[in-house]
Design a protein around this nucleic acid. Structure first.
Length: 503
DNA sequence: ACATTGATTGTTGTT
DNA sequence: AACAACAATCAATGT
């Protein structure tokens, strides 16, 4: 994980985010063929384009969880067959078709309208790409982006799902970083200050070397104080970044940020709205919590002074930890639901993504995959090798419905994933169209940019942390919050990881 | 200005 | 001195 240190490096371009591996199918099976291809070349960093699928829908309530899977599909299409990436190798050109077919087969209902759309998109993007494409390698950033973009949507999504489940629950090991240290402090900024001294933490502005940016900031406030709701974008970022990271562990924050931004751009209005709604909801919650919090402070601090506003003497509010706003729930939420698809489809124009990226020179090849295809595009290979138990498939394909957790076969996502990967990755070396993959140059080549160390680092996809893994090393606590289970009915999120966790 | 994440760094406290 | 704990910083982007 070592990302590069942001710190020092900041300077110029990022060293690169190596996308270590092509897309590997995450535990989730689903990723479609698209990923497959990309994975093919191992060497490629070239990812395919990533039709990134944004985690859509934020609202858990609204969403059907099962849908995550749906989102996976979306990715695929975007790949363009040939056109795309000159730079990237796409052997996969076929994929799209395959994926589509799979998708159709599986969820014909959902997709039906999409194909055309997708194809169109692809083309358009391609065109765009060509036009704008910077250079052989694109600016570094571009590369990065492109790489990133390469992430398969499905993977992202799947990971997101995973992450949401896992990550959230156990965000950070107690030890490591939690920003807010001790819950103990009851609060008040004063205390905080004291805290500073006491704990010795901070050094307000010591950095000699660096710039002392803004001296002020010191945010540390009362841990009990409710946190302000974050922006829709921030929520989106949260939901998405983990997935991106999961796929490209080596991606730097900047890379991830760009990708997320591009995804955001490509996100349909509706999806954005969904996030906004969450934000609003969170805001409401925040206000309430804040009121309670203040009230508690008042009562606590001094009975005598009425202090600020709120007045209410609400029950000292049980200072519950600022419960995570609903959206915290995660990522999962973000998956598209079938219902959403339409919206997404309409809204997100791949073009926008392309536009964005291209303009920024992020990703040339990135195609935003707009409409998330609902079904799970299992890669053919996957199907072959791992025939899922019927119910499993159904689970994947169909939303939440009746999955009872129990029945699930022990599935081991991991293994599956491996198999999938293997299946997919096979022919990296194969005759790749040369034109295609500019990015990964053979050793001998000049390589203008320092390419990320591509795969060497991640020789084995399998090693790659399974989606969840990517995040906190910690125990992904499987059970994680009970919420998870409850939220997601079958526990089945379509992601193998999830399943594995569940009994 | 602040939010997102996470690795790193620097400071301080404790052993 | 060694370690632990934690805040600050940085990256790119959006609100």
């Amino acid at each position: 994980m070592a990302l590069e240190t942001c710190r020092g490096g900041g300077g110029g371009l990022l060293p690169l985010p190596p996308l270590p591996f092509p897309l590997r199918l995450p535990e989730t099976l689903g990723s479609g063929p698209g990923e497959t291809y990309s994975s093919q070349n191992e060497s490629n960093e070239d990812y395919e384009i990533p039709p990134i699928t944004p985690p859509n829908l934020p609202e858990p309530s609204l969403l059907h969880l099962g849908d995550h899977e749906a989102s996976y599909h979306s990715l695929c299409h975007s790949l363009t067959p040939n056109g795309l990436l000159p730079a990237y190798s796409y052997q996969a050109m076929d994929l799209p078709a395959i994926m589509v077919s799979n998708m159709l087969a599986q969820d014909s209902h959902l997709l039906s309208g999409q194909l055309p759309t997708i194809q169109e998109m692809v083309h358009s993007e391609v065109a765009a790409y060509d036009a704008g494409r910077p250079g052989p390698l694109l600016g570094r950033p571009a590369m990065l982006a492109s790489h990133m973009s390469a992430l398969s949507q499905s993977q992202l999504i799947s990971q997101m799902g995973i992450r949401s489940g896992i990550a959230h629950s156990s965000p950070s090991p107690p030890g490591s970083k939690s920003a807010t240290p001790s819950p103990s402090s009851s609060t008040q900024e004063e205390e905080t200050e004291a805290h500073f001294k006491m704990s010795g933490e901070k050094r307000p502005s010591t950095d000699p070397g660096k710039k002392a940016k803004n001296p002020k900031k010191k945010k540390k406030k009362d841990p009990n104080e409710p946190q302000k709701p974050v922006s829709a974008y921030a929520l989106f970022f949260r939901d998405t970044q983990a997935a991106i990271k999961g796929q490209n562990p080596s991606a730097t924050f900047g890379d991830v940020s760009k990708i997320v931004a591009s995804m955001w751009d490509s996100l349909g209005e509706e999806q954005k709205q969904a996030y906004k709604r969450k934000t609003e909801a969170a805001k409401k919650e925040y206000l309430k919590a804040l009121a309670a919090y203040r009230a508690s402070l008042v009562s606590k601090s001094s009975p005598d002074q009425g202090e600020t506003k709120s007045t209410q003497v609400n029950p000292p509010a049980k200072m519950l930890p600022p419960k995570p706003p609903m959206y915290a729930m995660p990522g999962l939420a973000s998956f598209l639901t079938p219902t959403d698809l339409p919206a997404f489809r309409g809204g997100a124009s791949p073009a926008s993504l392309a536009r964005t990226l291209s303009s920024k020179s992020l990703l040339p090849g990135l195609s935003a995959s707009p409409p998330p295809p609902p079904s799970f595009p299992l890669s053919p290979s996957l199907h072959q090798q791992l025939p899922l138990p019927p119910h499993a498939q159904s689970a994947l394909l169909s939303p939440p419905v009746s999955m009872s957790p129990a029945p699930q076969p022990p599935v081991l996502p991991t293994p599956m994933a491996l198999q999938v990967q293997l299946a997919m990755s096979p022919s990296p070396s194969g005759p790749q169209p040369e034109g295609l993959k500019p990015l990964r140059l053979p050793p001998g080549q000049p390589q203008p940019l320092a390419l990320p160390k591509p795969f060497e680092d991640f020789p084995h996809l399998s090693e790659f942390p399974s989606g969840s893994g990517s995040r906190s090393p910690g125990p992904s606590n499987p059970t994680n919050s009970g919420d998870w289970d409850s939220s997601y009915p079958s526990g089945e999120c379509g992601i193998s990881t999830c399943r594995s966790v569940l009994p």
